[in-house]
Nucleic acid binder design. Structure first.
Lengths: 242, 242
DNA sequence: CGATCTGTTATTGTTGACAATACATAGCCG
DNA sequence: CGGCTATGTATTGTCAACAATAACAGATCG
């Protein structure tokens, strides 16, 4: 659990080397991100600057900075002169997020098929073996499965060799995906089916078949989207006016 | 006071607000964006906060705010404790931008084919007629052609009915595309070919053929990318250390 | 003569106070 | 009694000064 927190903070502030000088806004960004994604701050909740500043022991300056960066990662919605609130996706907005993923990840898969290295292919293979073992002994820390699943997708994004695609997907929208993924991840049967779909994507990558890799990746994400589309839309309301 | 209440109610209806309350950071953001895109600030140029604040007649607070938002639109790059610089894309990064566009716009075309309204189709048709007339009388304000071309792409993004896709494309990456588009737009023959490609995309939209619309849009953008890939890579260096 | 160390200066990070705006409550008038 | 207005409070926007970090220049030493 400590490990995961460290990982989260590293993900929250990407590109920064371990010993890089960390500013106050960086710390606030990491902490607030964790609180939002882990549910300590509920969707739609008002984020009052004086409160938060007191809570983090800083002034409002760095805090506003962190809020702006959270806004660019779509975890916070700000309206001028009215402050910031934790994001609260409607059912339609959540489906839209999956349509965005479908486009971005389809492209990463296509490009990765052309550019992925042999060692990266090996790492993906080992990752899926780990997932298989994890699913085998059921209930084995669902959280790790989540994390591992995203790992698969993000390694492919990295292997695409397109840093802009990677950033748009894994930096700008990563935590938002995490936030709204928890609710729908382990529908019955989905883990094993997802693993099988991952395997087929990997096979296409090995074959250097970009077209197929994209097709399979898009289907994979659309399957997840369809699972959500079937949900009752009451589960993600947008009526948080607190 | 009454006026402000009216304005507030107008703000309540989302997105379009004629006289929205404009903050200082908003103005700086708009001005700086224009200066960057129009070349008054060269790529790689250092952006010193005291200088800019004096120039805009404000303090550093709103200015830092504007810089952060420019960063999220990828128009400036900031490194902690070292300040901000105007973005300067390498040849590879520019190609990566087109790979991102290909993914996003392919998806917008696919979705728009399912969701676009009859009136939107009519507007697109009229827009392309305007473009044809504009190209007819050559040299007729290249700038307008540029703008009009992007108009076509963005109306499709809007017609996709996916606000997240629209924002990622037309808000987060719009100015960056404008900035690096000027250099390569009117290669000989490209305008007419581009118009023909637009026409075919529109036909696919009319036929409600999402798959074809996506295919054509992706080809269209890849053609533009190939034009750039053929350029000598010296035209976009990354060596601005001024 | 070159490299490293050190002191200086400029720039970024941070802070607390002030001004302007929006929200909530209570009072007023129809 | 209900809706509108006005006042008071809380929150956001803005500012100028202070602290910390990094770039720069000069001097010292090998």
């Amino acid at each position: 659990m400590i490990l995961t927190q460290i990982v989260n903070k590293m993900v929250a502030s990407p590109q920064i080397t371990p010993t890089a000088t960390t500013t106050l806004a960086d710390r606030i960004l990491a902490d607030l991100t964790a609180e939002i994604v882990e549910g300590d701050l509920s969707p739609g909740e008002k984020l009052r600057e004086p409160d938060l500043a007191r809570r983090f022991g800083t002034s409002r300056g760095p805090l506003r900075d962190a809020l702006r960066r959270l806004e660019s990662r779509r975890l916070v919605v700000t309206t001028p002169n009215a402050g910031a609130r934790v994001v609260s996706l409607s059912h339609e907005q959540l489906l839209a997020l999956y349509e965005l993923r479908e486009a971005l990840e389809g492209q990463t898969a296509r490009l990765a098929a052309e550019r992925i290295s042999a060692s990266e292919l090996g790492e993906l293979e080992r990752l899926l073996d780990t997932h298989a073992a994890e699913i085998e002994r059921r209930n084995g820390r669902e959280y790790f499965r989540q994390q591992g699943d995203l790992d698969f997708h993000f390694r492919i994004a990295k292997a695409s060799g397109n840093a802009l695609l990677y950033d748009t997907l894994c930096v700008d929208h990563y935590q938002l995906m995490r936030l709204y993924r928890t609710k729908f991840s382990n529908r019955f049967g989905r883990p094993n089916r997802a693993l099988a779909e991952h395997r087929r994507v990997l096979d296409a990558l090995k074959d250097r078949d970009g077209e197929l890799a994209e097709l399979l990746m898009r289907r994979h994400i659309r399957a997840a989207r369809d699972t959500i589309a079937a949900e009752p839309s009451t589960s993600t309301t947008n009526e948080h006016q607190l």
